[in-house]
Amino acid sequence: MRATSFIHPLLALVLSPLMLGVINRTKAWFAGRCGQPVLQAYYDLSKLLRKGAVYSRTTTWVFRAGPIVGLAAVLEATALVPLGGEPAPLAFTGDLILLAYVLGLMRFFTVAAALDTGSSFEGMGASREVTFSALAEPALLLGLAAVARLTGSLSLSGMYAAMSLETWRQAGPVLALVTAALMVVLLAENARLPVDDPNTHLELTMIHEVMVLDHSGPDLAFILYGAALKLWVLAALLVGLLLPVRTGNAWLDVGAALGGMFAVAVAVGVVESSMARLRLLRVPQLLVGAGALVALALILTLR
């Protein structure tokens, strides 16, 4: 483990809420509005952390444990993901499996906390969340399997360190397919358009926002921060593929990757501004489509 390994987790901890600000700014720019401050997510977090909390009488300790376990799990995930060619603090053979399952743990407890309120709204969101994530998981793992096959490494840090512009020259189509699939997974897992609308709070169409309706105060702050980190983690997977800049200088590489992260945020903003939310019945088709893309990528790697 190198000291530079800790650059990425620290950056993630500090900068992940900024991603939300960049996405919102992009959307405001498209809509011709001024938009909220770029640092709005930080203001929200500090406000929520200073508040008390309201709990439903229906809930039990599971409801209170949900945000804590969720945030702890996504923090563990952050420690698994490399950025800019630097290895992650926790890098080992098969860490990509742990990454997928740690995110699964986060989801399990978010869903359990949602069901603990006994609300039909939250039940609805929970039901959709588990449906879509069950379909997104094979796409994520198979996508990473394709990259593993290309680079011959079974650890995220090894896989991403082996990526370079040369890899794109040799296996461009495979990487393009995997990138597209991972983008779909990112949008679905982070409850962004066209799968879920992060802006609506009281419609029957939403997934993530409705699951956390009853959380308040520090609990909601944990959830908000956890969601920002999850977006960061999946975006880092994408950036590692898209921008394999290897100058040999750790700071330059990480800087380039950081630029990539915010480019992904802008891209998410562009998608959200230019698309409508899909009908819920169409979402499984989108996710299975992502699975088909990685399957195609894998067939290409097997030639």
């Binding site: 008390g52 309120t117 105060g217």
Partner: peptide
């Protein structure tokens, strides 16, 4: 701080 208990929203 205040920790209120109420019905599910």
């Amino acid at each position: 701080r205040t920790m209120a208990e109420t019905v599910t929203w």
